[in-house]
Structures are given as C-alpha cells and as structure tokens.
C-alpha cells in the first residue's frame, strides 16, 4: 500500500515536471498552420523540423552573443576570483576580513537598487549597448561569489605548503603558480559552471544594457515570445536553443552543478 502511494506520487510529480517539456517539443515540431489551441497535445503530423532551422537563423547572432558573453565573463571572473581567494586565504592583512565581509555584501543586494547608476555609468564610459559593457558588469558583480568560493577552497590548503615554498625562495606569484594553481582544478570547475549558467541565464542587466545587435539570447527570446500574433513554434524552438547549453552543463557536470548551487545560493 505504502509503495503504491509512493510510486503514484512520484509518477504524478514526474508528469508535472516533464509535461511542459513534452509540450515544448511537440509545439516546436509542428507546422505553424497546424498549431491550434485545442489540438496542442496531439503528436505533430507530419513532423516539421523547419522551425528549428528558422529559429536558429533568427537566434544565431544572439546565441553567439551569449556564447561570447558567458565564456569571456566566466574566464575573467574565474581568474579574478582565484587571485582574490589566494590573497584572502594565504596573505591576509590587517582588516582583510572586514574588507572580505564588505565585499560579500555585494552578492546579496537586489540589482534593482543599483540599476539606474549602473546604466548611467555604463553609458558614460561609452560601453552602453556593447557586449563588453555587459561582460564588465558580470565580472564585477561576480566578484563576491567567486572570491568566496576560491577563498573557502584555498583555506583548506595547508599553510605549511605555502610556507615551505616561501622558504625555498618563491614569491607571491611563484607560490601561486607552482603550489596553489596545480591544486585548484575543482574550484575552477565549480566557479566556471556557476558563472556560466548564471550569466547565460541572466536577464535584468542584459535587457537594460544592450541594444539589439548585442542582445544575448534570453532577451531575444523574451521579446519574441512577448510579441503579439506570434506563431508558437518559433518561441518553443528558441526556448530549446536557449536552454541547451545550460542543460548540457547540468546533465554532464551535474555533481559540480549542485555543489555550485549550494555554495552560491543567495547570490543576487
């Protein structure tokens, strides 16, 4: 009896989570003329792959923007985070803990509270509407979380290792390159996954700071789906395109994905 109840519940929950996905795929595979509201759940007949080609044509520049944005911002913030974490964990100075705490505050603020000055600032330095402006913003607001992850990770590395290298005559960067960096792979993976998915999925900064030619895919998708009289096969195919990279990360690097999720769950 208990088992039946358990499996019934799990089945219902699975339906709740997967039916939306099923409908997305159905709709994306239908000819636009055949998408009618009362037959939405019917299997497409014939299967129409054209939507994906059209959606890919339409979204390709935005998809490329997203790739450039997410990759470069992720790489930059991983480098910044590793250096910051190294300084805070292995070279603490008077007041460094306080500065770290002040830094962490940045990841809890709702970005609405800085959006207007940020918009003015990005405009004033001439980066409004460019991908570089958005990359800069993501790197800066990523500093708290990446610093936190690297600092926590580097705190686990014994100080004796650093001390020994110092006695051997290694300096700040020497120790980083020869002692710390070779041990850093897991932290880099967590940070890379976290930042990549966050930046890929981000919307508020993207919609505020870009022009059409520099839009990432989230903005393009929201605007396509928000338009009136839209044929739904395109937004659905677009949604699949926009979701694929992060789903890919989730499926193949799930373990690290979860770790990043639990580490940075309060980030704005």
């Amino acid at each position: 009896m208990g088992r039946i109840l358990l499996y019934t519940f799990l089945l219902l929950a699975t339906l709740f989570f997967l039916l939306p996905v099923y409908l997305v795929i159905l709709t994306a595979l239908k000819e636009p003329a055949r998408i009618t509201l009362d037959t939405v759940w019917h299997w497409p007949n014939p299967v129409y792959w054209e939507s994906f080609r059209v959606a890919w044509e339409a979204f390709r520049p935005k998809f490329q923007n997203s790739v450039i944005l997410a990759l470069s911002a992720t790489v930059l913030s991983a480098v910044v985070g590793a250096l910051n974490g190294y300084v805070l964990a292995k070279w603490p100075f008077r007041g460094s803990n306080l500065l770290f705490a002040l830094m962490l505050f940045g990841m809890f603020i709702p970005y609405q509270s800085i959006l207007i000055p940020l918009f003015q600032f990005v405009k004033a330095i001439g980066l409004y509407g460019t991908l570089w402006g958005l990359i800069l913003v993501h790197v800066v607001y990523g500093i708290p979380i990446v610093t936190l992850i690297f600092k926590n990770y580097y705190s686990e590395i014994p100080d004796e290792l650093v001390e020994a290298a110092r006695i051997d005559g290694a300096g700040f960067f020497g120790i980083f390159r020869h002692v710390i960096l070779p041990l850093s792979a897991p932290a880099f993976v967590v940070v890379a996954i976290w930042q990549f998915t966050q930046i890929w999925n981000e919307f508020l900064f993207a919609v505020t700071l870009t022009r059409p030619e520099s839009q990432p895919i989230t903005v393009a998708l929201a605007q396509l789906a928000g338009g009136e009289a839209v044929k739904w096969n395109l937004p659905m195919a677009g949604a699949i395109l926009a979701a694929l990279p992060t789903l890919f990360v989730y499926i193949f690097l799930g373990r690290y994905f979860l770790r990043g999720l639990l580490a940075g769950s309060v980030k704005g």
Binding site: A13, T14, F17, L18, P20, V21, L23, V24, T27, T197, W200, N201, E202, F203, T218, V219, L221, A222, A225, W232, P235, M236, G238, A239, A242, A243, T246, L247, V249, Y250, I251, G254, F257, L258, L261
Partner: peptide
C-alpha cells in the same frame, strides 16, 4: 534528475514555456 533539471533553465525560458502552457 527530472525534479532538478528546471534549475538549469533561465526564468525567461521557464516563463516562455509556461506562458504557452
């Protein structure tokens, strides 16, 4: 995996999907 995968999506994708649903 099934229960957790929506976490990998963006709110924009989720919103687009549910707007249609």
């Amino acid at each position: 995996t099934v229960f957790l995968f929506p976490m990998a999506l963006s709110f924009v994708v989720t919103g687009t999907i549910w707007r249609w649903l």
